[in-house]
Design a protein around this nucleic acid. Structure first.
Lengths: 350, 350
DNA sequence: CTGAAAGCGCTTACAG
DNA sequence: CTGAAAGCGCTTACAG
């Protein structure tokens, strides 16, 4: 079924059918109604590829998930629930606005070409980058992607001004620095003076900002910074356990650890418990990310929760606005979202 | 940049450029090389929409995630990590075979139209349905989707023969019944005689098969079936807790529960522990699905793990084969995958 | 308000 | 082995 057949059936031209489909004003109500009825009756769907070729947008948003290469052959990618928190909301909101969502995984340097292809083949009108690394930008800039790209978790100062000014990029960040500062002050209020930190790997903006926020807050609040309280967890459970074991052996334990993500907190807690060290009574924990596991385990993990929903929503809307050309000029294509402290059972009041 | 420009640059016709792009044999090596060089040099990407319109496939696979409507406005869809286990593998494998992946969420009856649209607008060459419900099939059949569809977790007998015979559908299931039977026999070997079950909602094939496998195995192995040991968990943590509370109050506890999914096991365990009932010493647990939370919590949950990877891989390959017309005739478009018992710390040997 | 015609960027018989 | 031409199913100035 194509538009010409509908046209014949109704007794109008293809042009008119097209006008109805695109909801143009210059069609009489009567004609419009007849066409709409025929479309409904024969379940006509305009061919997306023909529409796009003839000048319409593809109505498709690309979501690019940057992930570490999995070591084994059977990649357990799904363990990265970090992405899912954004992905399903993005899809849902995009669908509700009439966009289709194309998802691609980026697991190595050459995979960045997938992004370029998606744009160059005109498969997508805009893109959202999730899991951004410090080197991601180079890859993208190298590929000269022209349309609109939303980048999550990237320091705006690292982006060449022209991209931001030409409104070719939108930056969406969580306020990781502020969240870490808040976590420290919250813990101080709870009576903690020895506050440790378990670091992620700092090739992501969020991990490094969380750490910097911690460092600055410790100094600003007059707490003493102790190297022995800072562990290199590398976002990695076994590395975290190992570091924790060493700290236990040295008997250099703070009264609480802030962890750059929930999973390191979970690994560290398990390690302490094995040694009979009570959590949270002896050592308390605050995680980051609000994973499902943290919410369900015992004791339930207190954590800093990013506004996944708002960030996902804003990313879709940024692309939508850009395509609708509603984007105002200026610097409002940089967004920052606050965290929420979710108080559960792993912070003991001293 | 379009094919005509490349043609001019090289001094050949568009036809020849097209032949090179599509890797047709009837081009001299010399010409092919020159064209390829120009394509590389000018970073030419054929327009996907023009290609498809001119008769090529869209090289896009649709993944349709059927999920319950979330109660709140801010849908916490990402809590459904059931999907992610499949989704990221599907994307990865599809990408590696040169397919793009379009993902759509189905949260209500009218959303099934999204599936029809994706096919009718020719945006996808084939589709994968995840999270299938007993009523999903009606929706799909009603929409008269013509191309190839892979359906996960659907009883083959419910599908009209003609769809299977015409190779318009592939069915991919986990061996839920057998897994439940195995779980029961495993527990019997561990000395358990009072084996309970926490049920999901039975509008999914997997939930009902897990329950039926349990029932049949109890009978077959000569164990006594006790209604009080069977709880209506409805795949729901609060419902499970409530049912568990009642069972505790009645003092009608088996020595072990098989749970139709991990999350119900987690809720039930928490409930027992609150009452000072030791897990696994007093009451043991086997879950289903192998969620990350189950692997990380304390005690670590013993669970039946579906072969997510193989199922995802097979679904992509089924579509690929169908598009390549490699699909053999016959009934091999129904696949069943075994579970693996992951022994951790929640089954106590009596 | 409506239609005829050109054009979007490819592929593919067809002819040579 | 290669090119000219038709065609894929739409949209959009253009003319009326």
């Amino acid at each position: 079924m194509k538009s010409e057949e509908i046209a014949k059936l109704v007794g109008v031209s293809r042009s008119t059918v097209s006008r109805v489909i695109n909801n143009y004003p210059n069609v009489t109500d009567e004609t419009r109604k007849k066409v709409l009825e025929a479309i409904e009756k024969y379940k006509y769907h305009p061919n997306a590829y023909a529409r796009t070729l003839a000048g319409k947008r593809s109505d498709t948003i690309g979501v690019f998930l940057i992930m570490d290469e999995a070591p084994g052959s059977q990649k357990q990618l799904h363990h990265n629930d970090f992405f899912t928190a954004y992905l399903e909301t993005i899809i849902d909101i995009a669908n509700s606005k009439g966009y289709y969502v194309l998802v691609q995984t980026i697991t190595c340097a050459k995979d960045y070409k997938k992004i370029a292809s998606a744009f160059c083949e005109q498969r997508v009108d805009g893109g959202i980058l999730i899991g951004t690394r410090s080197d991601s930008l180079n890859h993208i800039l190298k590929e000269e992607i022209c349309q609109h790209m939303v980048v999550m978790d990237m320091e705006p100062t690292q982006i060449p001004k022209k991209y931001l000014n030409q409104e070719r990029m939108t930056v969406i960040n969580a306020m990781d620095y502020e969240a870490a500062v808040y976590a420290v002050s919250y813990l101080k209020e709870q009576g903690h003076k020895k506050i440790g930190f378990i670091k992620g790997i700092e090739k992501t903006r969020s991990a490094s900002m969380r750490y910097r926020g911690y460092l600055d807050a410790i100094k600003k609040l007059g707490l003493t910074l102790c190297d022995a309280y800072i562990l290199e967890g590398e976002f990695n459970q076994s590395k975290t356990s190992q570091q924790m074991e060493e700290a236990i052996a040295k008997k250099m334990l703070p009264t609480v650890y802030i962890c750059a993500n929930d999973y390191m907190a979970i690994a560290a807690m398990e390690c302490l418990q094995k040694h009979g060290i009570k959590v949270p009574e002896k050592v308390s924990f605050i995680g980051f990310d609000n994973t499902k596991t943290g919410a369900l385990m015992q004791p339930k993990l207190t954590t800093m929760c990013p506004d996944y929903f708002a960030m996902s929503q804003t990313s879709v809307e940024a692309i939508h606005k850009h395509l609708m050309k509603e984007q105002k000029t200026g610097d409002d294509n940089i967004y920052n979202f606050a965290f929420e402290l979710i108080e559960r059972d792993t912070v003991h009041t001293l």
